[in-house]
Nucleic acid binder design. Structure first.
Lengths: 162, 162
DNA sequence: GTATTATGTCAATGATGCTGACATATTATA
DNA sequence: TATAATATGTCAGCATCATTGACATAATAC
């Protein structure tokens, strides 16, 4: 039986170890997003709004197409959420100067405030986890997370490695 | 400006480092679940079905209430998914012997097959990430993930630490 | 001047979650 | 024994978030 599992999994990682990894991801991600979800619910927003606000805050002036790339959703899905955020004055769209077809996205003051409320909660949580785990652990966390994601996603982290 | 950020974040972790951590979680989780989602879509199932199948497979004979605890959803939400899985012969409910109110959940052969298809994909992905990162990194990953989740979730990992 | 690009919108559909209300066994307790 | 609590299930309604497909407009590229 143990032999069988070793054949199935030739890296000598036990089925149990890998299942634990799967579950670590599940519980950590769920808990990590739960508080934000609660904050957003008060504004009648959902996690999708959070993601848009986060990445627009992270990349001021981002093009709609680039945001779609990052989020990995369709423009129709983004449309409803983005229109809402623009309508309710969390995000402004500025026509691109070099290419006037573009609608470059920026947070408003109101948007920045919400972004900060959401992000700082997650940063606090992560900072505590980092502090408890230590610098070596954080580097290990980074390596495993990068390895677990698709090649295409890793490019988002390459520039920050310089 | 840098001073200000240090006050906000007294652990001497830069805003940038913590944002990167947030994004590592976002991209890794998204990519980690994407393949499974695609497999499930063929069966007209979603991620919720995956989670139920996974945890029933992990804890054969689990009570409905315990499953609800793990998933962190309401019984009404579980009901739709679970009924479907029972109706389509992926899961069987066996009346508890000591307490006949309980409906103890088990995978059928069909359920085990789907569970294996879904889980082994994620295990393969994680095994590759673990191998590339190395044992020290894996331990760091574990520490950070445990620290990022709620206290209540950590108990799911305590028994496996013995 | 035509093709492509960037963006937006309408409509229909499905998955996943929620609250609230109510129902049925079964077990525990006063 | 009568009543309360527990374990589970179900119905109805609602919101969010995603999809596909079709079509539209403005601006840029060839």
């Amino acid at each position: 039986m143990a032999e069988l599992k070793s054949i199935v999994n030739p890296l000598f990682l036990r089925d149990e170890d890998l299942r634990q990894g799967i579950e670590l991801l599940f519980f950590a991600y769920r808990d990590f997003t739960a508080r934000g979800d609660a904050i957003l619910a008060k504004q009648h927003f959902g996690r999708a709004h959070h993601r848009v606000i986060y990445f627009v805050g992270r990349h001021p002036g981002i093009r709609v197409s680039a945001l779609l790339d990052i989020l990995g959703i369709t423009k129709q899905s983004l449309s409803r959420v983005l229109s809402q955020l623009v309508r309710e004055d969390y995000i402004v769209q500025k026509t691109g100067t070099s290419d006037r077809r573009q609608r470059l996205l920026h947070l408003t003051e109101k948007g920045r405030a919400l972004e900060h409320e959401l992000t700082s909660e997650q940063q606090t949580r992560l900072a505590a986890a980092y502090k408890d785990a230590g610098a070596v652990a954080v580097e290990g966390f980074r390596k495993v997370m990068l390895g677990a994601m698709d090649m295409g996603s890793r490019k988002h982290f390459q520039t920050s490695e310089k």
